Amino acid sequence: MEIRWLEDFIALARTRHFSRAADEQNVTQPTFSRRIKLLEEEMGATLVNRQTLPLSLTPAGEEFLQLCEQVTDRVRLTRERIQRLTEEQARRVLIAAPQSLLSHLLPDWLRTLGLEELVVPYLRATSWLLADYFQALERNECDLALCYWPVERCELDLDTSAFHYRIIGEERLVPLSVADDVGRPRFLLPGSRRSPLPLMAYHPRGLLSSAIAAHLARQPEASHFNIVNESIQTTNVKELVGLGYGVGWLPQRVAQKALDDGHLVRAGEARWDVPLEIRLYRHRNRQHSGLEALWDRLDHMEMPLSSLSSLPGASS
């Protein structure tokens, strides 16, 4: 039994005429009559009294009409809901971001723009390396990629010519350590050859690692480290630094609360800070209404989001 057969029966009950009902349903009368006959066979009862003029429904037909109206109405409402869901899904924007930006920037940023309902975080991306974000944009796995980007010159083996970007904020990586008994950093930059600092480093193929290495290479004074751990996640670096295992660079947004609480302190002067931009990338050829609306909103933003308030010792 098909839904259109039920709609046929409703049309017949309304017009009380086979030809007019067939015209309404855009089928020939023989086809229409055959469908009504199939309904009667399926229900095992005569539904239409064909001896009256105009024709009438039998008691079984009246009962069956109520079922037809209930079923077709449910189908119509469900179809409308599905269509709305499909349209909303088509407008949604999938954004990939590292865990630190997902936790410490993205919610407030979306709230500021009023885009909480439109933009959906792509949680599989929280442990990706930088190249993974652009590969995902290339294959339409996500619509946007939110990532850190070095302000200073930094060699990155990455072709970004197929992508547009907007700078939406600023950040800086700050070297941090736990404090000793008198409040000074237990591990203080730059270290020495004889006593290299234990370093909680980032993945060597990651952007943060490259940005830190490029920044250190420009310093007039050499720094000395013994890498004791490598991680993709800033939260892992923060935890190990907080446990006193060594020094590590953290985004200011990630570190701010621990600094305010005095749990972490600067491991060096402001010259050791690594300036970063926060960029939002999209593929040039990826377009849909939700993405275009968001991109247009960014065009009218006044200033990028700055990092949090100055850290202790930032002016040193």
Rank of each mutant, 00 (worst) to 15 (best):
G246M: 06
D143Q: 12
E221K: 14
L77W: 04
V120D: 09
E7T: 15
R218N: 12
T86N: 09
V151N: 01
Y122M: 04
R153L: 06
V241E: 00
W295T: 11
L294A: 05
A270H: 14
L67W: 10
G114S: 00
T28R: 05
A21G: 10
K37A: 13
L137A: 10
R153I: 08
L101K: 09
R139E: 13
R20I: 14
G183R: 10
Q252L: 08
Q83R: 12
A96H: 07
E302K: 12
R50D: 00
R193F: 01
L311H: 07
W272R: 11
S223G: 07
L113E: 06
R279N: 03
E88G: 00
N26H: 12
P190Y: 10
D73L: 12
L57P: 05
D273A: 14
T15S: 00
G313W: 04
H203N: 13
F18C: 03
R34G: 03
G114F: 01
E80V: 08
Y202D: 02
Q83V: 06
E63F: 04
G183M: 09
R286N: 11
R271G: 00
E239W: 06
P175M: 07
R193Y: 02
Q66N: 09
W5F: 14
A11I: 08
Q70V: 08
L207H: 08
A201Q: 05
K238S: 13
E170T: 10
L189I: 09
D181Y: 04
V274P: 01
R20F: 01
R194Q: 15
L294Y: 07
W272E: 07
C142S: 09
R271I: 10
R124W: 05
V182N: 04
P275Q: 10
L77Q: 15
A179N: 10
V265S: 07
S103L: 10
V247M: 03
T86L: 05
E292N: 14
S289F: 02
N229H: 13
I82W: 01
Q135E: 12
R16P: 00
S307R: 14
R20Y: 05
Q70W: 03
L53A: 06
G313L: 03
F225W: 05
N236Y: 02
E42V: 05
C142I: 15
P59V: 05
R184L: 10
S316E: 12
R253V: 03
G244M: 11
